[in-house]
């Protein structure tokens, strides 16, 4: 069937795998953005910088302390998440009563500061991070590098675990309820300000985890999250921020569409997501999984 496009199968599957990997990052990042927005009413522009911080933390842990990838997978999100907690306590907390735009501007400013500092210290060319799993599998129609397969699986597991945590646990019920009516949830005896801080820390930790996973695939560089966060904004507009599963599906789906475009018409591959966004705005302005409020 694909012969009509005269595309060799290995190339197609290779690009689809790349798309899936990008999609995994879109899903993890848009998930965090959506959860943070639900609780804090802030679009966290710093998300891209925090993704970069995750990768950097892993790289610094490896080069300075010889801490291996697998430990960084836990340590780096923890460190960056704690940094997020600090940002929430010191800055974000004081502007919740203002228009959403101020949170956007504040976190934009923060991302300039963070990315600028890293660029100033380490330059903008990237540093390589050795792949923790060597080798791969010959699937017959394509070669699957083992680490890339692991990234897709790991991201899927993390996304589903997040979904489970929010939709099926007691803490998740607090979170959903506090998103709707924080005052009442607090009047039931739940420390909502702490819940908000925790949410931000978790969302940021998720971004950092995506960064650690990305480190062996991409170069670790100060600006690795700059363009990514802009694409993720489009993903969030397309999916709508109302549904956790919606964010996951949209993220992976758009990654695949991007990969497919790379095969069919390469020049459009980095704009196709924005085209999808334009179409969604025309057809269903609230987003595929969004509710109109």
């Amino acid at each position: 069937m694909l012969d009509i496009f005269s595309i060799p199968l290995p190339a197609l599957f290779g690009q689809l795998l790349l798309g899936l990997i990008n999609g995994a990052f879109y899903a993890m990042l848009s998930l965090g953005l959506a959860v943070i927005f639900g609780m804090l009413n802030v679009i966290n522009f710093t998300h891209g910088a925090q993704y970069m911080l995750g990768a950097f933390a892993a790289w610094l842990l490896l080069t300075n302390l010889s801490i291996p990838f697998w430990a960084s997978l836990v340590l780096a999100p923890l460190i960056v998440g704690l940094f997020g907690v600090l940002i929430e306590r010191l800055l974000l907390k004081r502007i919740y009563h203002l228009d959403h735009l101020y949170g956007f501007l504040l976190t934009f400013g923060l991302s300039l500061v963070i990315e600028g500092l890293f660029q100033w210290k380490w330059g903008s060319s990237g540093a390589p991070y050795p792949s923790p799993i060597a080798g791969g599998y010959n699937l017959g129609f394509m070669f699957l590098p083992a680490y890339r397969g692991f990234v897709v699986l790991a991201a899927l597991v993390v996304c589903l675990a997040t979904w489970y945590g929010i939709e099926r646990t007691r803490l998740g019920a607090y979170l959903r309820a506090a998103t709707e009516n924080p005052t009442l949830v607090q009047a039931f005896g739940i420390n909502v300000p702490r819940l908000i801080t925790l949410t931000y820390g978790l969302g940021v930790g998720l971004a950092a985890l995506a960064g650690v996973l990305a480190a062996p695939i991409q170069q670790v560089s100060a600006l690795m999250g700059t363009n990514l966060v802009l694409v993720v904004f489009a993903v969030v507009v397309i999916g709508g921020m109302g549904s956790i599963m919606g964010s996951i599906v949209t993220g992976f789906g758009l990654g695949l569409i991007e990969g497919f475009t790379k095969v069919v018409y390469p020049p459009a591959s980095n704009t196709v997501i924005f085209v999808v966004m334009a179409i969604v705005l025309l057809v269903k302005p609230a987003g595929l999984f969004g509710q109109t409020k």
Partner: peptide
């Protein structure tokens, strides 16, 4: 297209379109 959403979404949409123009 952008005025079909309001507030913070409007900001994100314009930002995304600008990024698209940049890539082009």
């Amino acid at each position: 297209l952008a005025i079909r959403r309001q507030g913070i979404y409007f900001a994100m949409i314009t930002l995304a379109f600008a990024q698209m123009v940049y890539f082009i």
